[in-house]
Design a protein around this nucleic acid. Structure first.
Lengths: 190, 190, 190, 190
DNA sequence: AATGAATGAGAGTTCATTCAT
DNA sequence: CATGAATGAACTCTCATTCAT
C-alpha cells in the first residue's frame, strides 16, 4: 500500500495493464473484479481512478489510438513511391497484427454498445478514428478521399477477416495488390 | 414423419421472428425473456426448440447467410463483364445495407464470444462464411483466391466502417473503383 | 418449487412476510437478499414479483395503511360522545402500538428518502395518509379541519416519542386529556 | 492546555460546517468523503477529530440541541400567561421551521439506526431530548408532566406532519388552540 | 497533524436456465 | 407440448475506514 506519487502516471499504468484483459475477453465479458484482480489492485482502487467501466474503456481506447499512430510513424520510414508506402502500412499492421487486431476488436465492441447511442461517446470515438486515418493519409500522400477510403476499407476488412479465422489471407499479398493497382490507377489518371 | 416437418417449420418460424430483435439489440443485449415475449411464446417453449441461446443464435446465423446468397443470386442478374458483376454485388449490399449491416454485426459479436473458443462453433461459423464467399466468387467468375479476398476484404471493411458512422463512403463509388482496377489488373495480367 | 396458482395472492403473501423485516430494520438497512432469505425465496423471485425494492416498499405501505383503517373501524365500536370516540382511537393505537409504531417508522423513512423527491412517490404516500385521516375524522365526527389536525398531531407526536424511548408517556392519559379538552372547547363554541 | 482548547475549538468548527450537509441529505445519504470535501479537509482529518461517522453525528446532535434551547430562551421573552408562552414556543418553531425540521429529521434517522441498539447511543440521545424538554417546561412554568408531554407531543407531531407535506397545518393556529385549551383546562382544575 | 490512496465487503439488480405443473 | 415461476451466481458500483507517507 504505497502512496502513489503521480496520479496521472499511475492511471496510465492501470490503463496499459488493463489492455490485455480487455483485448482478450472483450469489453462486456471482462468484469471490473477480474480486471482489478489481474492488475493487482482492489475494485475500489479502480473506481478511485476511473468513474466507471465505460470511462476506463474510453480512456484506454484513446490512449491506444494515440500510441498506434505514433509507433507507425516512427517505424515506417519514408519510401519514395506510393506502392511502397502502402506496403509499408500493410507490413506494419502485419507485424503488430496481434496488438492491432485486439484494438480493432475493442473498437468494434465499443461501437456496438447501444447504451452509448445518445451519450456522444460514439462521436468521440469516430472522431478519434478519423484523425488516425487522416494522419495516415497524409503520410501516404494520398489526397483523394475515395482512394483513402479504398485503402482503409481493404485494410479493415482484412484485419477483421483474419481476426475471425481466415488466416490464409496475407497482408503482404493484399498490400502488394492494392499498391500495384493504385499505382496503375493513379498513373493513368494523371 | 410429418411431425418432424412441422417441428422444423415451427423452429424456422421462431427463428425468423427472432431476427429483428437480435438485429436491433445485438446478441448479448437481448435476453431470452425479451425474445420469448416479443415472439409471443414462453421461455420454456424457446428452450423446447433450441437447447440454448447460443444454439438459437447459431441456427439463425446459418439461416440468414443462406437467404442472403439466395436473394442475391435472384436479384443480381448476370452481366457480361467482371466490372459489372462486382458493381452488382456492391449495389446489392447497398440496397440491403440495413439488413446486411445488422447481420454483419451479429456475425462479429458471435465471433467475439470467447466462451465458444473451444466448442467448434467458430469453426462452423467460419465455414458458413467461406461457403458464402465461394458461391459469390463463382458467380463473379473469379478464380484467383487473392483477388476474391481482395474484393471481400474491401466489401467487409466498407460495411464495417459505414456501420460505425462513416456514412460518407459510398458503395457505388467504391464498387466502381474496385471494378475498374480489377479490370485493368486482370486485363494486363492476361 | 411448487407452481404458484394466484400471482396476486402470492404477491400479497410476500408483502406481508416482508413487513416484519422492514419494520425491524428500516427500509434502507434491510437488503433484498436478507428479505428473500428470511421469506424463504430467492432474490430472483422477489424481483419476479416486484420490479424494485422501492416498488415493493410502496406496495407494502399501501397495503398496511389499508389494513389499519379496516381494523380500526372493525374494532372501534361507535360510542356516543366525542370524548369516547377519541379515547377509542387512542386505545386502538395503544393496543396495536407495536404494529402501528413500526408502520409509522416506515412511513417516516419513506418520506425521508430524497431520491424519490421528483418521482411522485411521496405525493402518493401523502395522499394515502390524507385518506386515512379523513376516514378517521369521519368516524369521530369532527368536521373542523384544525381540530382534526390537532388530534392527529398529538397522536403522531405521541407515537413518535414513545417509539424512541419515552415510554413513560401513556396513550390513555393523553387520550383522556385531549378528549376532555376538546369536549370543553367544542362545548363552548357551540 | 491551550492545545486542548484549540483542538476542541476546531472540532466545533468542523461540526458546524457539517450541519448543512447532514441536514440536506440526511445521515445515511451523506458520505464521509462528501463531508470532508465540502468542509474542505481530507477524510483523514475528519477521522483524526472524530472516531467514526456515528460519533461525529452524535456530537453534532448534542451541539444543535444545545444551541436550539439557547436561541429560544434568548428570543422568547417572558410573557406573563401560559397561553402566551406556549404561543411563543410555537412561534419560535414556526420561525425556524426549516432548521428545526431538519434537526428533527436527523434525530429521527439517528433513532432508526438499529446498529446502535446496544451501544447506549440511543440512551444518550434520549437524555439529550429530555433535557431540552425539561428546560422548556421550566420556561413555560408547567409542572404537570402529562401536560408537558401533551404540548410536546402536539408540537412534534405538527413538525413531523408539516415536514412531510401537510403544509396547510399552521403553527400559530395549533399553538393558539393548545394555549386556549390548556388555559381552560388548568383554570378549571385549580 | 494532515493527507488521500487503498481496501473489500456488500448493496441492488439481471438473466440463462430448469422444472413442476 | 407449453408454461412461467423460481433460481442464484455474477454484475457494476459504493463507502466507512485504515494507514503509509
Amino acid at each position: 500500500m504505497p502512496k502513489i506519487v503521480d496520479r496521472d502516471k499511475y492511471r496510465q499504468e492501470l490503463l496499459m495493464k488493463s489492455f490485455d484483459l480487455f483485448a482478450q475477453k472483450g469489453y462486456s465479458s471482462i468484469t471490473m473484479r477480474q480486471l482489478a484482480q489481474e492488475i493487482g489492485v482492489s475494485t475500489g482502487t479502480l473506481y478511485h481512478y476511473f468513474p466507471s467501466k465505460e470511462a476506463l474503456f474510453l480512456q484506454l481506447s484513446a490512449e491506444l489510438e494515440r500510441q498506434n499512430v505514433m509507433n507507425f510513424l516512427a517505424e515506417a520510414g519514408n519510401p519514395p513511391t506510393l506502392k511502397e508506402r502502402i506496403e509499408s502500412l500493410f507490413q506494419f499492421v502485419a507485424k503488430h497484427e496481434d496488438h492491432i487486431g485486439k484494438q480493432t476488436l475493442l473498437w468494434i465492441e465499443f461501437n456496438q454498445h447501444q447504451d452509448w447511442s445518445n451519450s456522444g461517446i460514439k462521436e468521440k470515438l469516430q472522431e478519434l478514428d478519423e484523425q488516425t486515418i487522416s494522419e495516415l493519409a497524409k503520410y501516404m500522400q494520398i489526397t483523394d478521399r475515395a482512394i483513402v477510403d479504398f485503402v482503409f476499407n481493404l485494410l479493415y476488412g482484412l484485419i477483421l477477416r483474419r481476426l475471425f479465422g481466415e488466416e490464409t489471407i496475407s497482408y503482404s499479398q493484399q498490400g502488394a495488390l492494392v499498391g500495384k493497382m493504385l499505382a496503375h490507377h493513379l498513373g493513368e489518371d494523371t
